[in-house]
Each structure stands twice: as C-alpha cells, then as structure tokens.
C-alpha cells in the first residue's frame, strides 16, 4: 500500500515536471536548430547537428553582430534594473500596508483597501493614455524611476493583498505581549512581523519579479527608447516572418534571472515556515 502511494506520488511529480518542462525544452531545441531543420518534412524532432549560431550572435562572438550584442547587454540591464527595482519597492510597500491593513483597525480601512485592490480589475488600456500624459508632465517617460513606478502600480495591489492575508494569519499573541512590553507599531512590524512573514514576502518577491520581467506592452508605451529584453525579443517577430532560432535563444537566456531568483528564494519559501518559531 505504501509502495503504491510512493509510486503514485513520484508519477504525479514527474507529470508536473513534464507538463512544465516539455514546451520549454522545445524552445531550447528550436534555439539551436537551423531554419532548414525547422522546416524539414517530415519535421525533425532533434536537429542533426546543434547550431549555436544564435547564441554566438547574441553574445558578440560573431563580429558582424556586435550591435545585437550591444542591444542584448543594454536591454538585459534595463530589464534587471526595472524588475529588481520594482520587486524591492513592492516588497517595501506590501510589508508596510499589509501590516497596517491586517492589524490596525483605523477608520476608513476597509474602503481604502477595497478601492486599492479593485484597481486590479482595470484593464491596462483603461489608464494607458491619461497615464502617458501624466508621466510626460512628470518627465518620467523613458526613465528607470518611471518604469519602476509603473511596474509597482501594477503589482503592488496583489502584493498588499497577499501580505495582508499572511500577516492576518500569524498568531497574534507575540505581538500582543510585545505591545504590553511597550513596543511601538514600527518596532513590532520590523522586529516581529517581518521575520515571521518570510514565506509571504518571498512569494510576493517572486510574483513581482516575474510579473515585471514579463511586462511588454507597458514598456513599449511608457519607455519606448529605454527598451527591455521582452521588447528586444518582439523585434525578432516581424510582420511576415519570425526568426525562430534567435527569438528562442533570447527567450532561453531571459529565463535565467527568474530561475536564479526562484532557486535562491526557494529555500525561504519552504523553510521559513518552520512556524515552530512561534513557540519560543
């Protein structure tokens, strides 16, 4: 019986991995295929000889494509600054607001919270043009602070909602005894709540980073000359044809930062909730 359970469990894990991985593998294979292999009939599942030409171009090993390498460098840097910046600001906003919404019964709390969360229901197009005008007046178009603030306005509501949920789920006793000991709200927030919500913050960090990282239309509109990696990718998708190997190669490379972030933060998501810390 136990053996059957274990086999079933392993099977389920394998299924999950295959479902997630197979299309990604297909992207990776495409990135090292020649166009000739892609359009062979019947299609080749595996290219006869891997061709790393696309990667060579992207990293400037090919002298004729130094401009591609320059754009690659520049757009990667822009993506990183925008996404890491957005992630840090959102974590900060979510921790502060999430705590206030979860633990302080201030007048107007429910209404302010409801309205801010309801903004998630707005389609991006509902704000795009007026926001463009506003950002032009504030000289935020094509700037890092501009990109970061727009990213934050998109992802802060969900982050605040999640953090409020996490903090509301924490046992109140520790905070209560700290209050009796005379600790103020800010001390309680940073000394007690902050370390206890590690898994929540990690989930928020991952969600925000990945959200910012995959932003596309927003960047095209608000920052057309300070391009991100996704905008660079779309340049391989032309009206009449798609440069599949190049596009897939940039796609594969652009998965690396999210993977690094997730693997690094993973352990806090999993171990953080040795909620045993409550006992001490």
């Amino acid at each position: 019986m136990k053996l059957i359970g274990r086999i079933g469990f392993a099977g389920a894990v394998l299924l999950l991995a295959a479902w997630s991985l197979l299309p990604v593998i297909w992207t990776a294979i495409t990135s090292i295929s020649k166009v000739k292999d892609l359009t062979a009939l019947p299609p080749n599942i595996f290219p006869d000889a891997p061709n790393f030409g696309s990667y060579g171009k992207l990293f400037g090993f090919d002298q004729n494509s130094w401009d591609v390498w320059a754009t690659m460098r520049e757009t990667s840097l822009n993506s990183l600054i925008g996404s890491v910046g957005g992630m840090i600001v959102v974590i900060f906003l979510a921790l502060l607001s999430g705590y206030a919404f979860a633990r302080v019964r201030f007048p107007g709390r429910n209404w302010v919270f409801f309205i801010c969360i309801a903004t998630m229901a707005l389609p991006g197009y509902a704000v795009m043009i007026p926001l463009y005008q506003l950002m032009m007046d504030m000289h935020l178009l094509n700037t890092y602070p501009g990109i970061i603030l727009v990213f934050c306005s998109a992802f802060a509501p969900i982050a605040v909602w999640l953090m409020r949920g996490f903090i509301a789920g924490l046992p109140y006793e520790i905070e209560e005894s700290a209050t009796i000991d005379g600790a103020g709200r800010w001390r309680i927030l940073f000394a007690i709540v902050f370390p206890l919500t590690a898994p929540g913050l990690v989930a928020v960090a991952i969600i925000t980073f990945l959200g910012c990282w995959s932003m596309f239309v927003t960047v095209m509109v608000f920052s057309p000359s300070l391009k991100t990696l996704n905008v660079f990718i779309s340049e391989f998708v032309l009206k009449t044809s798609i440069d599949y190997p190049m596009m897939c190669a940039v796609g594969v490379i652009s998965m690396i930062p999210p993977i690094l972030i997730v693997t690094f933060l993973n352990r806090y998501l999993i171990s953080g909730l040795m909620m045993g810390s409550v006992k001490s």
Binding site: L16, P23, V24, T30, F216, G251, S254, V262, L269
Partner: peptide
C-alpha cells in the same frame, strides 16, 4: 527545490516566446 524551480519555468519564459513556441 528542483521541482519547484521547474514548475516556475512556464511563467519565466517570456509570453511572446511561449506563445510562438506553442503555435509552432
């Protein structure tokens, strides 16, 4: 750790690339 990282992959692949791969 590994399975969690693998599960995140579809989300880490840029939407355009994911979409075009599926279409392919």
């Amino acid at each position: 750790f590994l399975v969690l990282a693998v599960m995140i992959l579809p989300w880490a692949l840029p939407p355009v690339v994911g979409g075009v791969t599926w279409r392919w």
